[in-house]
Amino acid sequence: MDLPIIHYSKSEYIETDTGNKVSRKSVICGSQNIVLGGKTILQTGSVIRGDLKRTGTGHAVVVSVGRYCFLSQGCVIRPPCKTYKGVFSYYPMKIGDHVIIGEGTIVQAATIGSFVTIGKNCVIGRFAIIKDCCKIEDNTVIPPNTVVPSFSIYKGSPGKLVDELPESIQEIYEARTKDRYAKFIPRAD
């Protein structure tokens, strides 16, 4: 089935000049440390903690999100933290292009590649690395420090490989995220 058109009320979302649509009811801490690639949608209730940054001065990017991403309602994006050489710090987090993160998912990964779909109510542990072209099913728990290689489908708790994605998945996900962005339009009133 084709995706239905999702309407939102114009007053609820801010649209930036690069095409990002950010809900006013999303919780963005430390917005100066967050970079959104163009045409990314942050739905109501999503939380991005840009205030947890690396110790040290200077303007650092804490969370960078790519283009055509879709962060659903209630998802939480938090940078991961650990002690390294005696220093405790939070580390920057990078999310690629064309990434869909489902409702209620908590993401603390170190990097998420491009063309990734993450289901609802997932938990991506600290310093997990999700490479390009992956799919994480609903209700999956990815333990900390896990590496999810390309073209895998992970499911369960702890997340295990259950299947492989077809070779055409990059085009499928790209078309899907672009379509999702195109169908997210303000209500006519």
Binding site: M1, D2, K131, D132, C133, S150, F151, P166, E167, S168, Q170, E171, I172
Partner: peptide, 19 residues
């Protein structure tokens, strides 16, 4: 993640979807 050759049906045949 790239392919040297990728002859998938998605790029050659019409994609039929239920609109």
């Amino acid at each position: 993640t790239r392919f040297k050759i990728n002859l998938v049906a998605l790029n050659q045949l019409p994609n039929i979807t239920i609109a």
